[in-house]
Amino acid sequence: MERKKTIVATASLAGCFGCHMSLLDIDERILSLIDLVDFNKSPINDIKNFTEYCDIGIIEGSCCNSENVHALKEFRKNCRILISLGECAIMGGVPAMRNGIPIRECIEEAYMNSPSVKGHNPEMILPNDPELPMLLDRVYPCHEIVKIDYFLPGCPPRADLIYSALEALITGNEMKLPYEIVKYD
């Protein structure tokens, strides 16, 4: 009897897609992974909505706006196991550097005052379309919004760390954590 494949979904919230790139860094091992795994909602295959309940959800990036929070809650609802992948998902990372700065100051810097926009926004318009997600008061690590089951640090997490975690989850064996693969940068 053919063994049922593990279904994996991934998302990039307030992140840079570096963690997804690192997933691809597992090189030829991706072939053996494909034998074990099917991807559901993910930027890798461009599936936009969940089509079934998933075994593993992998979250890259933190929550900086209302859309991120919505997406993260959807993942929690549709995945049995959720993994925070990378520094942003775990502690806010680079986006969290805005946490000490008032939002108005951030937006004004981005759209009115920074050298690259000075003179190009003469009417001093700030983005105000109701379709745009609202920025949160600060950047939130994923585990402060929903329950997260596992954490894989790194910027990006080493490919070996991601592979070793997925392998352990799929096979049920204990995860190997050699010194070289747990890094924060």
Binding site: S84, I90, M91, G92, A96, N99, G100, R138, P141, H143, E144, Y150, F151, L152, P153, L177, Y179, V182, K183, Y184
Partner: peptide, 17 residues
């Protein structure tokens, strides 16, 4: 933190200014 293999702190982040 590497030696102790801290994957995530058990305490909430305070993000001080």
């Amino acid at each position: 933190a590497y030696r102790f293999q801290i994957l995530v702190p058990r305490f909430p982040y305070s993000f001080p200014k």
